[in-house]
Write a protein that binds this DNA or RNA. Structure first.
Lengths: 87, 87
DNA sequence: AGGGGTTGTGCACGTACGTGCACACTGGCC
DNA sequence: GGCCAGTGTGCACGTACGTGCACAACCCCT
C-alpha cells in the first residue's frame, strides 16, 4: 500500500489491525505503546514519533519499503512546479 | 529499499540525498525542515516526527510502500518468539 | 598556508510530546 | 431496557521536541 502522508499511514495501519482481529489495546500492548498514542496515530496525527511507528508496523507483521518514485530525472517538486506554472 | 528501523531510514535518506547531489542545507530548504533536525534524522534519531519525515521523502522524490511481510499466518512477533525459545 | 563548504552537536527557547487516567459515545449482545 | 467492549479525546504530568544559533572538525581546492 503506497503511503504519502500521515492520514494514509494511520488509515492503513487501522485497517491492518482490524484485519488481524486486534483492538487498539491489544496492538498497543504488542507494540509497547500506549492506547492513547495509537489512537492518535490512527487518526493521522503528524507529530507522532517515527520509532514508535516502526514498532507498530513490526507488531502487525508489516514492513516498509522506500524507493524512488517512477518520475523524470529532475526532482519531483521541481517537476510538479513546472507543471503548475501559469503560461 | 526495505526499512525496519530509524537507523535504516536515516542511512537510506542520506544516501538518496547524496545521490541527488544535495547538501543537508539544500534538502532542508526543499522539505521546509531545519538542517539541525535533518542531521538528527539521518543519524537515526527515533523520536523525530513522522510528518516531517514524509516531507523529506517527498522532497527527495521517493515514496513509501507498506505491506505484509511474506511470513506465516501467525503474527511476526509470535513467530520470532517461537524461534527464539530455548529447548 | 588560508578559504570555503559540509556536517555533527550542545545549548536556549517556547511548544508539544507520550503516557495514564477518566469520561462520553457507539454498537453489539442478551 | 442494561451491560460490555471498543474507541475518541481532554487534561495533567514530566520530559523532550523542532528550531535557530554557534562552534569545532574535516575535506577539498587554490
Amino acid at each position: 500500500m503506497r503511503l504519502s502522508n500521515c492520514e494514509d499511514l494511520g488509515s492503513y495501519l487501522r485497517e491492518c489491525r482490524r484485519e488481524a482481529g486486534l483492538s487498539q489495546a491489544d496492538l498497543a500492548a504488542r507494540a509497547t505503546v500506549s492506547r492513547r498514542w495509537l489512537s492518535d496515530l490512527e487518526a493521522g496525527k503528524p507529530t507522532v514519533e517515527v520509532g514508535l511507528v516502526f514498532k507498530v508496523i513490526s507488531a502487525l507483521g508489516l514492513f516498509v519499503d522506500c524507493r524512488p518514485a517512477p518520475e523524470p530525472e529532475i526532482g519531483l517538486d521541481a517537476f510538479l512546479d513546472s507543471l503548475g506554472r501559469e503560461p
